[in-house]
């Protein structure tokens, strides 16, 4: 399957999904008015990847901002990852002092049946 590599814009995050490495990364800002258009291809990719995933899958979410439209799409994306039975972890990065972003990660952690690792960093 083809990898996904998308450059970030002022409204959408950069995306790097590498199937052979089991590595999925979303980084930057996610504030499009209609997030479905942006996230639909990512969900389709995950659905395909989940059918024959790597033994280990690492998901890195490193967002500076995301709007409520994106929050729903991110949840749907995580739900698609839940079907992977092999080892999977979601690394949820947040800037130091950004308790809102930490709280958002905790909310997803409470909903999704995948282990989350909260990682504080200096700057996204």
């Amino acid at each position: 399957m083809e990898d996904i590599q998308i450059e970030g814009t002022p409204k959408t995050p950069s995306v790097k999904f590498i199937a052979s490495e089991g590595s999925l990364e979303i980084k930057g800002r996610s504030i499009p008015e209609n997030s479905i258009e942006f996230y639909k291809p990512l969900m389709d990719w995950i659905e395909q990847y989940s059918a024959s995933p790597q033994k280990e899958t690492v998901v890195n979410i490193q967002l500076e901002y995301f709007n409520t439209s994106s929050s729903k799409c991110i949840l749907d994306l995580f739900k698609k990852l839940e079907v992977i039975n092999d080892q999977i972890v979601i690394n949820w990065y947040y800037e130091e002092d950004d308790e809102d972003m930490l709280e958002a990660g905790e909310d997803y952690d409470a909903i999704i049946n995948i282990p989350f690792k909260m990682i504080e960093i200096e700057e996204i």
Binding site: I36, S69, K72
Partner: peptide, 8 residues
């Protein structure tokens, strides 16, 4: 559910 316009 997201609306067609993207509202959550």
């Amino acid at each position: 559910k997201l609306s067609e316009e993207g509202g959550a």
